[in-house]
Simulated scan of single mutants.
Amino acid sequence: MPTLKDRVAGAVAAEADSLVELSREIHRHPELAFEEVRAHGLLTDLLESAGFAVTRSAYGLDTAFRAEIDAGAGPTVAIICEYDALPEIGHACGHNLIAAAGAGAAIVAARSLAERHSGRIVVLGTPAEEGGGGKVYMLERGAFEGVDAAMMVHPAGRDLTEMNTIAIERTRVEYRGLAAHAAAAPQLGRNALDAAVLGYLNVAALRQHLARHERVHGVITRGGTRPNIVPEWTEAEWYMRSPTMDGLQSLVARVQSCLEAGAAAAGCNMSREPIGRVYYDMVTSEALLDLYVRSAAEIGRTVDVPEDGTTVVGSTDMGNVSHAVPSIHPLIKAAPAEVSLHTRSFADYAGGPDGDRAVLDGAATLALTAIRVLENGPLLLTSGRAEERA
């Protein structure tokens, strides 16, 4: 009798051409957050042809979807697809690989579900991970209700158990001053550019006192119109990141004080508004991760625990999901270790042979993991660092 690994490997091989073409087609036509119309259509058509009941434009989002196969009582496993790209550099985060691997894993796992298990496989197409917070909206609108385990795999330069996923809040800051002729009557003006620059300098001074894994970065997006007019309106954007939500709240308050001090010193008013949604830190389900690592080993990949020098740092809305549902977000090697995410070089690898291998190995590993959840559902109900989610 063929082993589970052999059955899964054979099923992935049968789907290989279509999965690779899906990945490359999404890669050839990168679409930005909430604009992923083509990718949405390709994925939903594929899953529908594989027998999934598909809801397009789900949860009030035009490019979100839900696809499921229900085989009675048992665990519900959600496999996550991302498919948005970055401005100018396309799929430099490899979301085309996430989409194709996720769809392939669901198709293969659903076959096993029909043959041997009971439960439900759900594919959630989650738009706008790159800043738009698609998963946050979907979480709030009930997409993850009843889900026992949520999983996805993200490409990187190494096979790692997890990314160092830190919480992030983004904010847009406006400064309002008073215009005046910069040569004839500068004393009548209140310089909003000075307010923005002073706020920036205050944050620069704050950086030396941040905790090791905290990050703050900002840009001035509007600095004035002409040098002979005292700027009356300027604008900046700031990203603040911390390993935990408690740490993020403290950091945001400290940064806001720095920015407000710049406004006060320049005699200007400051206002701020959020950009998108807050992304939480990632809470990894250890039991679910163990199943993934075991499955990857059977496929021929060794998944390492991140250490200094191998850690990939970033933020994702999968963190929000992980606070509600046992979840994993492992990394799969799709490029050389020295090629970092969000670069043109990584985008090239995501559309090449290394990316193709990541799609097929990722599909097989996720499928094996999902099937093992169907077999061991009660394990997942008490898995993960529950005390951190409480």
Rank of each mutant, 00 (worst) to 15 (best):
residue 65 F to V: 06
residue 46 L to S: 04
residue 77 V to D: 05
residue 67 A to T: 10
residue 79 I to P: 00
residue 104 G to S: 10
residue 62 D to T: 15
residue 96 N to P: 02
residue 102 G to A: 11
residue 67 A to L: 10
residue 41 G to C: 05
residue 36 E to L: 08
residue 66 R to I: 01
residue 82 E to L: 03
residue 29 H to D: 01
residue 98 I to E: 02
residue 93 C to M: 05
residue 61 L to D: 01
residue 23 S to E: 08
residue 86 L to W: 04
residue 54 V to M: 07
residue 33 A to V: 02
residue 40 H to E: 12
residue 46 L to H: 13
residue 100 A to G: 10
residue 39 A to F: 06
residue 98 I to D: 02
residue 76 T to V: 15
residue 56 R to K: 15
residue 53 A to Y: 00
residue 105 A to S: 12
residue 66 R to G: 00
residue 107 I to P: 05
residue 91 H to G: 08
residue 101 A to K: 04
residue 96 N to E: 12
residue 78 A to H: 09
residue 26 I to H: 11
residue 30 P to K: 02
residue 67 A to F: 03
residue 98 I to L: 13
residue 94 G to V: 11
residue 84 D to Q: 13
residue 60 G to N: 07
residue 51 G to P: 07
residue 100 A to W: 06
residue 106 A to N: 09
residue 71 A to R: 15
residue 73 A to Q: 15
residue 64 A to D: 10
residue 75 P to G: 07
residue 86 L to E: 02
residue 43 L to W: 07
residue 72 G to Y: 04
residue 82 E to D: 12
residue 106 A to K: 02
residue 106 A to W: 05
residue 78 A to W: 06
residue 51 G to S: 12
residue 78 A to M: 06
residue 44 T to F: 08
residue 72 G to D: 11
residue 30 P to A: 01
residue 67 A to H: 09
residue 24 R to E: 05
residue 32 L to F: 11
